[in-house]
Nucleic acid binder design. Structure first.
Length: 214
DNA sequence: CACCAGGGTGGTT
DNA sequence: AACCACCATGGT
C-alpha cells in the first residue's frame, strides 16, 4: 500500500509544476498521445510540426490525406507506417463523433470505452487523452509508475494496475493534481529512477535496490 | 556499439 | 493469463 498523496507532494516540491500537456488544442493533444508512444517527445513534436506544415493538422484534412504523405510527416516519431494509419483512424473517429466538441460532451466512462475501440489507443493512451485533452480525472498507469511503486514496496509482489489506479484515485481526487502527478512521475522517472541495470550475476533487471527517495 | 524513448497489437504457450 | 516479436526513428 502506497500513499500517493505524499509522493505527489515530494515530487511537486522537488520539480515544481510541469504544465503538461505541451501543445494546443484537444485534437493536437490526441495526435501527440499516439505519436509519443515508445518515442521521445522531441521526435513526436517534430512529427506534429511536420503535419502542421503539410496542412494535416485538422481531423477532416488528416482523414482524407494520402497515407504516404502522412508517413513522410511522422517519420521522425518512429513506427511511421503504423502511426500514420492510426492517425487516420483517429481522425475518422473524431469526425464520426461530432469532432472534439462532440467528444467533449460524452461522459467520462463512455468516452474511455470509445477511445479504447480506436486502433492504436490502449489503456495508457486513452487515460492520457482523457486527462490532458478532455480534463477528466483519469489515472495514467505507465511503466514509470509501476517501477516507482515496485521500489517503494521493496521486494513485495508488484501491485496490479488496478491497485495503482485505486490508490491514485483515492489520494489524488481532482484532475489538476492527476495532471501534474503523471507528468512528475515521468520526469522523475527519467532523472532519478531511470536505468535499472542488469544484474551482473543473473542478467535480469530485478529491483534489488531499495530506492526510498520518495 | 547497445540501449532507450510519455505503447499497442497480434500470435503463441 | 502470461509471455513474445514486432513496429522504426533519433539521441546518448
Amino acid at each position: 500500500m502506497i500513499c500517493f498523496r505524499s509522493v505527489f507532494e515530494n515530487l511537486i516540491s522537488a520539480y515544481g509544476p510541469q504544465g503538461w500537456w505541451p501543445g494546443e488544442g484537444r485534437f493536437e493533444i490526441m495526435l501527440g498521445a499516439v505519436l509519443v508512444q515508445r518515442t521521445a517527445w522531441r521526435n513526436a513534436e517534430t512529427a506534429i510540426d511536420s503535419l502542421k506544415r503539410a496542412g494535416l493538422h485538422a481531423p477532416e484534412a488528416l482523414r482524407a490525406a494520402d497515407r504516404r504523405e502522412i508517413e513522410r510527416c511522422v517519420r521522425s516519431a518512429g513506427f511511421f507506417r503504423t502511426k500514420a494509419e492510426r492517425l487516420k483512424g483517429l481522425a475518422a473517429f473524431v469526425e464520426e463523433h461530432g469532432g472534439v466538441d462532440g467528444l467533449a460532451a460524452v461522459p467520462t466512462d463512455r468516452l474511455r470505452d470509445l477511445l479504447l475501440d480506436v486502433a492504436g489507443i490502449g489503456p495508457e493512451t486513452a487515460d492520457a487523452i482523457l486527462l490532458y485533452a478532455f480534463d477528466r480525472p483519469a489515472v495514467v498507469v505507465d511503466a514509470y509508475l509501476r517501477r516507482l511503486a515496485q521500489r517503494l514496496l521493496g521486494h513485495e509482489k508488484p501491485p496490479s494496475d488496478t491497485d495503482l489506479r485505486r490508490w491514485t484515485e483515492r489520494d489524488l481526487n481532482h484532475s489538476a493534481a492527476l495532471n501534474e502527478f503523471h507528468a512528475l512521475v515521468v520526469v522523475h522517472g527519467k532523472r532519478v529512477c531511470g536505468r535499472v541495470p542488469r544484474c551482473s550475476q543473473c542478467g535480469v533487471r530485478h529491483f534489488c535496490r531499495t530506492g526510498r527517495e520518495l
